[in-house]
């Protein structure tokens, strides 16, 4: 399924995910609602760290380990983008 319902920011972050983590997939293959960890895209906690650092660099949004929303933030591409939009400084 193509990313017809993907928002511009989602397309952008999907690209960032693929690039940062060296994934061998097309960014358009990441479904906005698909889980990023485990069953879905299959990312692990090391990927989460790498991704957090890339997001901090690109958007000036520092994801903190003591953030109570952290698990919800990393749930899917969509939730991650919502958090980025809310917290970005660049």
């Amino acid at each position: 399924m193509a990313l017809t319902d993907a928002l511009p920011i989602e397309t952008e972050v999907a690209k960032l995910i693929v690039q940062t983590l060296n994934l061998k997939i097309d960014p358009a293959q990441i479904q906005p609602e698909q889980p990023l960890f485990g069953e879905g895209l299959g990312l692990d906690s090391i990927d989460a760290l790498e991704l957090s650092l890339a997001i901090s660099q690109s958007y000036g949004y520092q994801i903190r380990s003591d953030d109570p929303e952290i698990v919800a933030t990393f749930a899917s591409l969509r939730s991650l983008c919502k958090s980025i939009e809310k917290n970005r400084t660049k």
């Binding site: 960890f37 906690s45 090391i46 989460a48 760290l49 957090s52 994801i63 903190r64 380990s65 003591d66 953030d67 952290i70 698990v71 990393f74």
Partner: peptide
Amino acid sequence: VGAPDTMLQVKD
């Protein structure tokens, strides 16, 4: 090991 935030705690 396992939770998405584990490695962020390591980094912190």
